[in-house]
């Protein structure tokens, strides 16, 4: 029977996190043994004896000492944890971007070239990978123990997480946020491949990129009728809108990021672009994958402009 006691280290985070984990384990272990040992020792040394007086002691010095020292240690742990946390939060430039959609009870993965997979994530070794994640329904959580990474996956929001795998192999993925009946089977694998193998694997994908798929939806759903550069367009022209500041009715502005685009499509009435009538209908049939494709398309329109 397989009986591992320590988790595999397969990302750049793992060694740093593990160092802190084992250091804290040693500290808490020693503290526990120490304080229990002292209690038992004192309990035996000062075992009740008829005729001996108990002596009550007070000591301001000691009180200060065991207030200040634990406070310093706690601050140290805070700082150490924060340093590791900055690593998690600092997403490097030039990542390989992959989309993840959680859905009761599976993971849909979408690679940049349009290749898709379910409950499997193929990534190249030694390359920073960024996952942009959202949920179709309830809150899930994408967790890869061997990489020591975890991030909640929320409906109507995009959360991001990055990692760099360091060891070729196959590792489990779990959903860590309780999400209903089949929560415990909402798992999968991440396959870390040599970079060349990964490229080869990727080529086996379908010819349609997300942006192309997005364009198709854009035409089929009739977005084009209002958002067409040519006509006396009823809606704003979407070329170049991604990443730009958009003026809203009422004088506010907002940066058109993924979340704004998503909201504009799913609840158009939430924020109305300045100078336009709130004409845009809702599209209840679009699922999160379609929306990611549309976003990719709108992004590609901006890229073309540059």
């Amino acid at each position: 029977m397989n009986f591992p006691l320590i988790p595999e280290q397969a990302s750049t985070f793992a060694p740093n996190v593990d160092l802190m984990f084992y250091a804290l384990t040693a500290f808490v272990g020693l503290f526990t043994i120490g304080i229990t040992g002292v209690v038992i020792f004192l309990g035996i040394k000062y075992k009740a004896e008829p005729g001996r007086k108990s002596v009550h002691m007070e000591s301001m010095k000691l009180e200060l000492l065991w207030t200040v020292i634990p406070a310093i240690i706690a601050l140290g742990i805070f700082v150490w944890g924060a340093i590791i946390y900055f690593d998690y939060q600092n997403i490097p430039e030039n990542t390989l971007d992959i989309n993840v959609i959680g859905k009761q009870w599976m993971w849909k993965i979408q690679h940049g070239n349009g290749k898709r997979e379910v409950n499997e994530l193929h990534v190249p070794v030694n390359k920073a990978v960024k996952l942009t994640m959202t949920s179709q329904d309830v809150i899930h959580d994408f967790y890869i123990p061997a990489f020591r990474v975890k991030q909640d996956v929320l409906p109507a929001k995009y959360t991001e997480m990055w990692f760099e795998a360091t060891k070729v192999g196959t590792y489990p993925v779990f959903c860590a946020e309780y999400c209903g009946t089949q929560h415990s089977t909402m798992d999968g694998i991440v396959v870390v491949m040599e970079q060349d193998d990964y490229q080869e694997w990727l080529q086996g994908g379908p010819p349609v990129t997300p942006a192309q798929a997005g364009e198709t939806i854009f035409q089929q759903m009739g977005c084009i009728t209002c958002h067409d550069a040519g006509a006396a367009s009823r809606g704003p022209i979407l070329n170049g809108v991604f990443g730009r500041e958009v003026a809203l009715r009422g004088g506010e502005t907002v940066v058109a990021d993924e979340e704004y685009i998503r909201e504009s499509i799913m609840t158009p009435s939430a924020k109305i672009a300045d100078g336009y009538a709130p004409l845009m209908p809702t599209f209840p049939n679009l699922d999160e994958e379609d929306i990611l494709n549309i976003i990719a398309y709108i992004k590609s329109l901006s890229d073309e402009q540059q």
């Binding site: 804290l24 808490v28 304080i35 038992i40 805070f78 150490w80 944890g81 924060a82 975890k150």
Partner: peptide, 28 residues
């Protein structure tokens, strides 16, 4: 006395979970 030993472990492991970076792999 049992309380002291067990609470030391319970409170001490709270430090793991309270430290942001350390909590990421341990959360949930």
């Amino acid at each position: 006395i049992g309380f002291i030993g067990l609470f030391a472990i319970g409170g001490g492991t709270g430090l793991f979970l309270g430290a942001t970076g350390m909590d990421v792999p341990l959360h949930d």
